[in-house]
């Protein structure tokens, strides 16, 4: 059995303490906050908050969850800046609705507005040799 893998050397840097206000999109709001403050690469250390409604990619389907007050149970993933300078994210997690049903998947860009707040801590990833 053989496979391919790439390993990037690096270190963890500063912690970014972030809040998104209501109706900011979970994905594009985090990406914009990173661009505004020069955060090029980061990973999620912790996040607590809620969404108005939610749309997730899960199992090849788009899952729509109707709120308001959808609880973000867990959030994980990373943000990366490519060679061309474009910052993108891959954010995944779990949610619960008002009937306590639990959902999981990858958050779709522009389709997950914050309801009351998002409290988020990102940690900077500093790849070795990154300029």
């Amino acid at each position: 059995m053989s496979g391919t893998a790439e390993i990037e050397n690096g270190t963890l840097g500063r912690l970014a303490v972030i809040r998104l206000r209501p109706n900011e999109d979970l994905v594009t709001g985090i990406e914009t906050a990173c661009r505004e403050h020069g955060l090029r690469h980061a990973l999620v250390r912790s996040a607590v908050g809620s969404l108005v409604d939610a749309r997730l990619d899960a199992g090849g389907k788009v899952v729509t969850v109707t709120g308001p007050g959808i609880e973000i149970l867990t959030l994980g993933g990373e943000l990366r800046t490519g060679a061309g300078g474009a910052l993108t994210s891959d954010l995944r997690g779990t949610l619960s609705d008002s009937d306590a049903r639990v959902y999981g998947g990858r958050f779709r860009r522009g389709e997950n507005p914050i309801c009351i707040t998002l409290e988020l801590v990102l940690q900077e990833w500093l790849p070795q040799g990154d300029g």
Binding site: R14, L15, A16, V17, I18, R19, L20, E24, A33, E36
Partner: peptide
């Protein structure tokens, strides 16, 4: 709408 403060590692 987005607030970010840097914390020391």
């Amino acid at each position: 709408r987005r607030i970010l403060e840097w914390a020391d590692v």
